[in-house]
Design a protein around this nucleic acid. Structure first.
Lengths: 144, 144
DNA sequence: TTGATTTTGCAACCTGATTGCAGAAATCTT
DNA sequence: AAGATTTCTGCAATCAGGTTGCAAAATCAA
């Protein structure tokens, strides 16, 4: 079985388990996310999936978000980035990790092994999500 | 001395100490930030400073940012929010605190007494700023 | 097959951010 | 004080990312 087929099989399983019908386009979008080395924007996906329309990508991502297949990261670049959620059951805070945005090359890095620190909110505040992005210079840009 | 005069005096001192010329408009913007209970957007400032143009507000905030008088918060609402930096010397991570964005009423709260947790970045990454926003429901919206 | 539902592409729109430019205001020079 | 120079501000236009309406295409169900 080829790499692409394995990805599609995994994508299909995952989508079905969350109640998302695995259409051809959705499999394409999902596997693009599987192959991405870092969080990607709608524009990134548009570039690598030339056959698929921006609005369809957008709606697909919205659907994935609603069904907790992916989460979105606001890195301050002006466009939201998306990545697959690897937690077993939901996109809870425990499944998330830190991100780093390089202000020079504008790439966003995942620090997969750095979970979001626990926080004790004041009485009455209920947490449903979190966005923790460190900004600065990545190793490639450190001397710029 | 009236409240407004005290604010202006403080604003002027602060601006001068950071090398920003305290024009009339800048004093207005600065004191609006002083009086704000929570981080505000350009649109918020436009509303409360009807005499000042949006682009001037924008340029003023950009100037304040460059001179570390304020910092910007990306709360995921689509518009950047701004608040005064209260640190003595810079807008370093140590001067910053957590923010909470209510997904129902779209208000952003400051948790002034909750500093950003320390993080150990991988070798080669240099931190210059941070954006840590918790999302969920505030006490007023908790039962919605 | 036929009719209903869902998915997709295209084009248009919206909103916040950003810029070009010219007049107004402040500053400098003599 | 007057003119030259620089800085600041308002207006209008532009840009980019996000979002939606609508109709055609694809899928599903009877």
């Amino acid at each position: 079985m080829k790499k692409q087929e394995i990805l599609f099989a995994e994508a299909e399983t995952r989508m079905c388990s969350r109640g998302v019908k695995p259409t051809a386009v959705r499999l394409l979008v999902f596997s693009a996310l599987q192959m991405a080395a870092r969080p990607v924007s709608v524009a990134d996906l548009e570039t690598c999936l030339q056959t698929v329309d921006k609005s369809t990508i957008f709606r697909t991502l919205t659907l994935f978000l609603e069904h907790h297949l992916i989460h979105g990261i606001e890195d301050g670049s002006g466009s939201v980035k998306y990545e697959l959620c690897h937690g077993e059951w939901d996109c809870s805070v425990r499944d998330m990790h830190l991100h780093f945005f390089c202000e020079h090359c504008h790439r966003t890095f995942c620090f997969k092994d750095m979970p979001i620190p626990e926080v004790d909110l004041p009485e009455g505040f209920a947490m449903r999500g979190v966005n923790f992005v460190i900004k600065g210079l990545c190793p490639d840009c450190a001397d710029k």
